[in-house]
């Protein structure tokens, strides 16, 4: 297939010359054909639920009976009367900042290691990606077990290394979110593979030219690698923000395991354990909508989450574009 690329000018045809009007029409039809399914998908799987959610957010609804219009009451409750919701929002913001940053850096770092490995390439890739292959519940359970403060091998190793009082990890309110972040780095294989694919895509000539100019590895990374992978970097950032904002399954399972109740994930006792340190906004929202039948309130939370996510991401994309041309290569 690459053969076509390698004899470019040879096959330059002239016959395609048509009037600009027909060309524009054809262009429009092409675009339409390319994006039509996605537009339908957008309307059905985003537009409809979003509108329904906005509507529900102004009602008292249980999802079973006709909703009752209550105006802004759900929003007022969210901002005034719901301390758990507030804690959850702060936790989610924390994750959006810390987890996003570390996940992108970590994925890029591991991908950079992988790209330099020459012996056993496939072996290492598979090894690094393996955690992401595992079903999340089992993977999370295993991870939390290894970090058990009393009996887990991690703290045993730390004590052996001379750390007197190693952290309580998932059982300690101050360590719970950092522990969750570690867990998510462990399963960041997806982003790592994406970064790897991007790194492998960097045109060789750029590196060669830079090397000829005498640029060291750091400068080459900064001036050659980063700009060429910037669209993928943008993906990594946005994807990580979304992941953090919608963080759900692993936090539910990790808190249940840490509370000693791996078997009853989702029980009110284990949600957010310890001390609501792992209570995320989506978890509380789900709890409201499904468990407590406050669909209207859950919808209001959802609208808020959506607005903040979208505004934040839009600003992020614009900033990255403006400051460094990130995200829109060439």
């Amino acid at each position: 297939m690459t053969a076509t690329l390698e004899r470019p000018a040879a096959a330059r045809r002239v016959g395609a010359g048509t009037g600009p009007g027909r060309r524009r029409l054809r262009n429009r039809l092409t675009v339409l054909a390319f994006v039509a399914p996605a537009i339908i998908g957008f309307l059905v799987f985003f537009g409809y639920p979003l509108l329904a959610t906005i509507f529900f957010s102004f009602t008292r609804a249980d999802g079973l009976n006709p909703p009752v219009w209550v105006g802004l009451r759900n929003y007022v409750h969210l901002f005034v009367n719901d301390p758990v919701g507030r804690t959850a929002a702060l936790n989610t913001l924390w994750l959006a900042l810390v987890l996003t940053l570390l996940r992108v850096v970590f994925a890029l770092g591991t991908a950079s290691v992988l790209v330099r490995v020459r012996t056993g390439v496939g072996f290492f890739r598979t090894l690094f990606y393996l955690p992401s292959l595992a079903p999340p519940v089992a993977a999370t359970l295993a991870f939390v077990f290894l970090f058990n403060p009393g009996t887990g091998p991690v703290n045993t190793a730390l004590r052996w290394l001379g750390v007197d009082s190693p952290p309580g990890w998932f059982t300690d309110p101050t360590w719970a979110k950092p522990s969750l972040t570690l867990l998510m780095l462990w399963v960041s294989g997806e982003l790592m593979i994406i970064m790897l694919a991007a790194l492998l895509d960097v045109p060789v000539e750029l590196h060669e030219a830079a090397a000829l100019d005498g640029a060291g590895p750091l400068r080459r990374f900064w001036h050659v690698t980063l700009p060429s992978i910037s669209p993928v970097l943008l993906f990594g950032v946005v994807n990580s923000v979304i992941l953090a904002l919608q963080f759900f399954t692993q936090a539910m399972v990790a808190s249940a395991v840490a509370a000693g109740s791996a078997d009853v994930v989702g029980n009110s006792k284990t949600l957010g354990y310890p001390g609501n340190a792992t209570m995320t906004f989506p978890i509380w929202l789900y709890q409201q909508g499904f468990r407590q039948f406050n669909m209207g309130y859950a919808a209001a939370m959802c609208v808020l989450l959506f607005l903040v996510s979208f505004a934040g991401t839009a600003v992020l994309i614009r900033q990255m574009r403006n400051t460094s041309g990130l995200g829109e290569a060439r």
């Binding site: 946005v238 959802c302 959506f306």
Partner: peptide, 15 residues
């Protein structure tokens, strides 16, 4: 980008 931002747990009900 926006379409990825609705939490699946909520979208699930209308869908």
């Amino acid at each position: 980008v926006a379409a990825m931002m609705l939490p699946p747990q909520v979208v699930a009900v209308p869908l």
